[in-house]
Nucleic acid binder design. Structure first.
Length: 351
DNA sequence: AAGGCGGGGTC
DNA sequence: GACCCAGCCTT
């Protein structure tokens, strides 16, 4: 009778495949692996594709070559290096953790699970990844790839985004984790991103195709099961382009919440453009001039319909506002779509 | 348990 | 358009 569940030996088959097919990635260079590189890359890779991370990782290495260098950097410079990568609390936490490692652990990432797990920005997955890949510990690292691969391999129909499904698979991973846990974890990632991909998995190329319950049952395009996401809330965002003596007025966003501690052109959120303009005029105590730019920016859970107006003779509001020239604002962290607006207004600053 | 938090590639 | 990615933190 045909077996539905995979055999005991599949982890070794996967490792053999990995030995022939491992991806060559910038953060995988050197043996033993540089724990700092493993850490930085794992944080950058959270909810972010490999191709998007590569250029950021390379410039990060030059800018902050060691944990000490990162610890000594200013937060604004750290955010600037992260600009465009998204989920900026990752950068903030990386920076905080670097300072903690420098102070408490003499500049070396601790090897104890409890200590690593306590660092800001390091959750269950990242702790497992660092400990297994950099320190050779016997730890699982369950991320989206692993959830998908196991859901298919074992024919698991639980929702992988809910804690029950996640727990079910984590237990299974811990049970199947072989020696060479670090390689095994990387092998699962490589399989997940090259072969066992979310849509239309390439089962004919899979070293485990003979073991896969989903394939056997014809469910390879059905599993994994995951709850659909909610749709975004839409807003109108009116922005003011105020220019004085070759400089534009910028505002520093608060240190909490979305795009925290990043700079933006003065803006207000509203449900209609008319209301937005009125609010902006009240904020700046002036009159909106020509509308020079519109753009729709889509976040994961929010949509901003942006409208930028020229403002003349208005006053600088109270709070965290500053005038910056082009050369200056290229060096500060700019919030999402405001980087695009800032680039667009450069010609206006020349006059 | 659910929601906030970015940006971009891909179909 | 919709989907989803090497998740974590707060509520």
């Amino acid at each position: 009778m045909d077996r539905i569940q995979p055999g005991q030996e599949w982890p070794h088959k996967l490792l053999a495949w990995f030995d022939q097919n491992r991806r060559d990635l910038p953060w995988r260079e050197g043996r033993p692996r540089n724990p700092y590189y493993v850490w930085v890359s794992e944080i950058m890779l959270q909810q972010t594709r490999t191709e998007a991370v590569k250029p950021y990782f390379e410039s990060w290495k030059r800018r902050f070559p060691t944990i000490e260098a990162l610890a000594e950097a200013k937060e604004a410079d750290v955010l600037h290096a992260w600009q465009g990568l998204g989920y900026y609390s990752r950068a903030r936490n990386l920076h905080k953790a670097a300072r903690e490692i420098a102070e408490k652990y003499g500049g070396a990432i601790p090897e104890d699970k409890k200590d690593v797990r306590a660092l800001p920005g390091i959750g269950e997955y990242t702790a497992g990844a660092i400990l297994s890949m950099a320190y050779g510990k016997h730890e699982a690292a369950v991320d989206g790839n692993v959830l998908r691969v196991y859901a298919r391999l074992y024919g698991i129909e639980s929702d992988i985004l809910k804690s029950a499904g996640r727990k079910e698979i984590t237990t299974l991973v811990e049970k199947t984790l072989p020696a060479r846990a670090g390689d095994f974890n990387e092998a699962l990632m490589d399989l997940g991103s090259e072969v066992c991909v979310p849509k239309h998995p390439k089962c004919e190329k899979c070293p485990l195709h003979g073991e896969c319950a989903a394939l056997r049952l014809g469910l390879e395009n059905v599993l994994p099961i995951r709850t659909p996401k909610k749709k975004q809330k839409e807003s109108i965002v009116c922005c003011a382009v105020m220019i004085k003596e070759g400089k534009a007025l910028f505002h520093l966003r608060p240190s909490k919440g979305m795009l925290s501690s990043m700079w933006e052109l003065p803006m207000v959120l509203s449900d209609s453009e008319k209301d937005g303009v009125k609010m902006l005029e009240k904020l700046l105590g002036g009159k909106a001039g020509e509308r020079i730019w519109t753009y729709t920016h889509v976040f994961t859970h929010r949509i901003w319909h942006m409208k930028a107006y020229l403002f003349h003779g208005a006053k600088e509001p109270e709070g965290d506002y500053r005038w910056y020239s082009c050369e200056e604002y290229r060096e500060i962290p700019l919030a999402g779509p405001h980087a695009k607006l800032a680039a667009y207004i450069e010609p206006y600053l020349e006059e």
